[in-house]
């Protein structure tokens, strides 16, 4: 039962993957039209989350299914998967760190190559302890998310809109998920809880996309009438 629930939960995270892809496409379109770096960073941030989720979900499903199919014994198949699984986890950590850092680059308007290179090195420096310490990784992400939420609150104060509020709530849920992981550790139940909270964040993003698409569709229908 736990096995089935676990896999259903990861399957549900396909929603996150799809939403991340849609928003990445919006970012790419904006960049294609303007060639402004902030849109490239925005699209790239969601693209990295998209790729990160795909590899993580695939890795978990393959790992759990293999373990389920070969209970008790440790077959060669699992032995081969373990190093791959660690590499995938490393990639996920790197993508997550870059994805949130890109938001800080956007809000702080950092575009100069020298500054970007420095920040790139900083991420790589944080990568090693983040890979080896689950708590360290979550502490770094919590710090990054606090910055992102601060900028978004400032943005909301300038012009209050429902979509902006939804984005803030989504990022607060991301923050909550990493706080849960930081304090409770990486047990199966806690990880499932944290990623379920992140699933709600992506559902909030989906709400924004649907609000925008449906609003446009209503206008098209009105034109036809």
């Amino acid at each position: 039962m736990v096995f089935v629930m676990h896999n259903i939960y990861y399957f549900l995270n396909i929603v996150s993957v799809i939403v991340a892809a849609i928003i990445a496409i919006y970012g790419y379109k904006a960049y294609r039209l303007t060639h402004e770096k902030k849109y490239a960073f925005f699209g790239l941030s969601f693209l990295l989350q998209f790729v990160g989720y795909i590899i993580l979900i695939t890795a978990f499903i393959v790992h759990k299914t293999t373990t389920y199919l070969f209970p008790g014994a440790v077959p060669e198949a699992i032995k081969n998967i373990v190093p791959l699984y660690h590499s995938i986890y490393g990639a996920y950590i790197l993508f997550t760190l870059i994805a949130y850092t890109l938001f800080i680059l956007i809000y702080s308007e950092i575009h100069r190559k020298s500054e970007l290179t420095l920040i790139g090195f900083l991420i790589l420096a944080l990568m090693y302890p983040s890979y080896h310490s689950f708590r360290f990784f979550n502490a770094v992400v919590i710090g990054l998310l606090l910055f992102v939420i601060y900028y978004q609150l400032m943005n909301y104060k300038e012009k209050k809109e429902l979509n902006k509020l939804i984005v803030i709530l989504a990022f607060i849920l991301f923050l909550a998920s990493h706080i849960v992981l930081f304090f409770l550790g990486p047990t199966t139940g806690v990880v499932a809880l944290a990623y379920t909270i992140q699933l709600f964040s992506f559902l909030l993003f989906l709400t924004i996309v649907l609000r925008i698409e449906l609003k446009w569709q209503r206008k098209e229908d009105q034109k036809l009438k």
Binding site: Y26, A30, Y39, Q152, M154, Y156, I208, I212, K215, W216
Partner: peptide
């Protein structure tokens, strides 16, 4: 077509404070 596309992009990017 671009006007409609821009409206959508503008709404998404504004929501994120871009």
């Amino acid at each position: 077509k671009l006007v409609e596309e821009l409206r959508k992009i503008k709404n998404v990017t504004e929501a994120f404070g871009l």
